[in-house]
Simulated scan of single mutants.
Amino acid sequence: MELALDAVEARHPAARPGHAPALRGLTLRLGAGEAAAVIGPSGAGKTTLLHVAAAALPPSGGTLALGGQAPWALSPRALRALRGQLFLAPQVPPLPPRQRVVTAVLAARLPSLGLARSLRSLFYPDDIPGAWAALERFDLGDKLFERVDRLSGGERQRVGLARALLSPASLWLVDEPLSALDPTRAAQAVSALVDGARERGATLLATLHQVDVALAHFPRIIGLRDGALAFDLPAAQVTPERLRALYAQHEHELLGAPPVAEAPAATAAPAVMHCR
Rank of each mutant, 00 (worst) to 15 (best):
G114D: 07
L119A: 12
V260Q: 12
A164Y: 00
V102P: 14
H217L: 12
P264Q: 15
G67P: 00
A107E: 01
A89E: 11
A187P: 14
G43P: 03
T203I: 07
P13D: 15
H209M: 11
R29M: 09
F123M: 09
R150N: 01
K46F: 00
F145K: 04
A162T: 04
A73N: 04
D139L: 04
D182K: 06
H209D: 13
A263T: 15
G154P: 11
P264R: 07
A55G: 01
R185D: 03
L229T: 01
D6T: 07
A56L: 05
A108G: 08
S179H: 00
H252D: 07
G45L: 00
G67K: 09
A15K: 08
H19G: 11
A236Y: 10
H51Q: 03
A54Y: 07
T203M: 05
G84W: 08
R137P: 02
V272K: 13
D226Q: 09
F231L: 08
L166E: 12
D149T: 02
V194W: 10
T47D: 04
V92E: 10
A65G: 02
I222A: 01
L5S: 05
P58S: 04
H51N: 13
V101R: 04
R29N: 03
A197I: 01
R77T: 15
R200E: 13
A53T: 05
G40D: 07
A7Y: 07
I39L: 08
A131T: 03
G61P: 07
E2T: 14
P258C: 08
G201R: 02
A266R: 12
A55D: 00
P76D: 04
H217A: 08
Q69L: 09
T203R: 13
L161T: 01
G61T: 03
V8T: 09
S42G: 08
G256W: 09
P111T: 10
W172V: 01
S170Y: 02
L171A: 00
D232R: 13
D226H: 06
P270T: 13
A187R: 12
L115A: 15
L49K: 14
L49N: 06
G227D: 01
K46Q: 11
S152Y: 15
A245W: 06
A4Q: 14
R163M: 15
A216C: 08
Q249M: 10
V38M: 15
L254V: 04
A216P: 01
Y247K: 11
A53P: 00
T207C: 06
A192N: 13
G160R: 11
T103N: 15
I128D: 06
P125F: 09
E9N: 06
A261K: 03
A268M: 10
V148A: 10
A4N: 03
A228Y: 07
A180F: 04
A269T: 08
R225P: 12
L208S: 02
L95F: 06
L23E: 02
L233T: 04
F231D: 01
L173Q: 04
A236H: 07
L50R: 10
Q69E: 07
D126I: 09
T48G: 00
P168K: 00
